[in-house]
Design a protein around this nucleic acid. Structure first.
Lengths: 149, 149
DNA sequence: CCTCATTAGTTAGTGCGCTAACCATTAGCG
DNA sequence: CGCTAATGGTTAGCGCACTAACTAATGAGG
C-alpha cells in the first residue's frame, strides 16, 4: 500500500473501483462519436459483436456472454429490432426461448464496424501491447469477482 | 495481437472495452451487498469518499473529481440530502455555486465505511500488489482517454 | 451603470442496469 | 396422465449517466 493509503484508506484517488468506473466510462465515451453514425450505443455494439460471432442466440445465451440480466437485454434487443438490425423469433423447439438472429441490414453493418477498433486504438494512442496487458489483468479481476466467495 | 484477433478483429472476448465494462460492473456488484446496509449505492459511496476528503465542495468540484456531469450529480446529491447525509447550501460569495457539506450523520458514516475496502479486497481474494498494478494501468488508460485527441 | 456573454446548477428526455414480480412453457415425478 | 417445480422472457420501478435546453447569478466591456 502507498503512504497515502496508510494515512487515509478511503482516499478517493487510490480506490480501484473508482479507477475502474472512470476508465470504463471514459473509454465508452470514446466509442460514442464512432458508434453514433452507425446508430449504436456501446451496449448495443457489444450485442452486435456477439451476434456477428454467434448468431443465432437466445436471450439466455447473450445474458451469459455479456454478463447482463435478461431484463436489461430485453428492451435493448427490441430497440435493435425496431432499428431493423435483428429479428426476435420464438424457438420452434422450445417456445419459451427466443431465437435472436441478424437481418441483412444487421449483417451488413459489420463492414462499418470493422473500422471501430482501429479508430479507438488510434484515438487512445496506447501501445497494443499495453492494452493487451490491461486486458489480461481485467480478465483476472472478472474471474476473481465471479469466484463464488 | 493474438491469433484470433487476426482472424476476427471484432471477437467479443478480445475487446478491451468489453473487459472494462464487465470488470467495472462485476466489481461494483461486489460493493452492493456491502454498501446496502449503509444505505448507499456505489456512485453515492464515491461521492461520500470525495466529501470525507474534501468537504465542503461545489457541484463543479465534484464533477471534476468524479468525472461526472453536473446533471448526473444534481439528483444524486438530492437523494443523499434527503437521506440526511449532507447539506446543500448556496455559497454566500457566489450564489450560483452550491456548497455541499456533510451533516453529523454523514460524518459518522465514515466509521462504517472504513470496513468497506478490506471487505472488498478480501472478497476479491487478489494480491494487493496486483490490484495496485491494475490501478496503475487504469490510470494510464484514463489519462490516454482524456488526452484532447 | 447596463448590456451581453459566461458560468453554476437544474430539468427533461433517452437508454442502460439492477431487483422483484410476473407469465408462459417445459420438464420431472408420482 | 396430471400436477408441480423449474426455466426463459417480459414488465415495472428505481437509480445512474449522458445530451440538450433552460434559469439564475456573475463578470467584462462599452
Amino acid at each position: 500500500m502507498r503512504q497515502t493509503d496508510l494515512e487515509n484508506p478511503l482516499a478517493l484517488e487510490h480506490q480501484v473501483c473508482f479507477a475502474l468506473a472512470i476508465a470504463a466510462r471514459s473509454v465508452i465515451a470514446l466509442y460514442r462519436p464512432v458508434l453514433e453514425p452507425m446508430g449504436l450505443t456501446h451496449p448495443q455494439y457489444l450485442v452486435m459483436l456477439a451476434l456477428w460471432e454467434f448468431e443465432p442466440v437466445s436471450v439466455k445465451d447473450l445474458s451469459g456472454m455479456l454478463q447482463l440480466e435478461p431484463a436489461t437485454l430485453s428492451p435493448l434487443l427490441k430497440r435493435l429490432e425496431s432499428a431493423g438490425l435483428l429479428r426476435r423469433d420464438r424457438d420452434t423447439r422450445d417456445e419459451r426461448s427466443l431465437a435472436v438472429s441478424l437481418t441483412e441490414k444487421g449483417r451488413d453493418l459489420r463492414k462499418q464496424a470493422l473500422k471501430v477498433p482501429p479508430a479507438i486504438v488510434d484515438r487512445l494512442g496506447m501501445d497494443v501491447d499495453e492494452l493487451m496487458q490491461l486486458h489480461e489483468r481485467l480478465t483476472r479481476v472478472i474471474a476473481a469477482a465471479k469466484e463464488p466467495s
